[in-house]
Amino acid sequence: MMTKTKTETLQLNVHKVTLRTKLSRNRTLILMCLPAIVFFIIFNYIPMPGAYIAFTDFNYNKGIFGSRFVGFKNFEFLFNSGKLWQLTRNTILYNLAFIFLGNALQIIIALMLNSILSKSFRKVSQTLLFLPYFISAVLVGFMVYALFNYDYGFINGLLKNMGKEPISFYSKPGVWPVIIIVANLWQSTGYGSIVYFAALCGIDQSLIEAARIDGANGAQVIRYILLPSLKSTAIILILFSLGGIMKGNFGLFYNIVGTANANLQPMTDIIELYVYRTLINQFNFPYSTAAGLYQSIFGFIIVNIANAVVRKIDPEYALF
């Protein structure tokens, strides 16, 4: 009780004091945040104005701000190339699949893990599920190649064993969305389900006991107690991933599809790959930056809309 009053007076005082005293009172705390502030300034904020390249005819020697301003000319190509729609569509659809399929699967698995009573089974399966989260995108790409390549791929070996004709996956754009989405789920489900499982562990057991005594069966417990308790976790995770909806897990796509096999592009091209490729194939800093800026701004708008919607429904869950 003592401490509580103390805090209150402390907070009361805070409102009265000037900025100067506030600063000096929080001096240490500010200093403690300083490394992080400097870090984000250097690695995130300073490059931001560099997006100005998108509006110039970038000259290597004159640098970003010495180059000639050309207005929106560089953006014209994005629109003219006709790619923009395809890229935007792919990026968003892949992300929606990742986010919603991913979270649904994670929740289902968390609930299942929760209903499994054998501790050893739970521990072993959790470890196995989590295993794919530990490997790099490079290895995921290589595994996909090892599974699906024509010459010695695991799947084609299986087909040959069963006396069937091998399939040339790398010439069939249509199968790649499935492969990429499955690869993503394969890698992230274990991790996500642990987050949800952790949320389930945090539920007050007496609630469940009480429901049981009132005659609720297992399915009803899940439906009315467990699932609702995951709501806040789900909203936070989904909102966080929506922030990156225009980003596309570059490493996964880059390592699985590569940049050489243009055959697959209609189904696999995302904005980030395009940004990267414009730099590789055309060495074109302005165009690459223009595409990146489009991605950033579009993403920014989407997350703001999502956040506003959430705020309207329940301000508790809003990110900012």
Binding site: F40, I46, P47, I53, F240, V275, G292, F300
Partner: peptide, 17 residues
């Protein structure tokens, strides 16, 4: 800090910097 997840300068400017 959170804002940096929403907006970034992009590949080329970061590389140059």
């Amino acid at each position: 800090i959170y804002f940096t997840t929403l907006f970034s300068g992009g590949l080329a400017p970061t590389y140059l910097w």
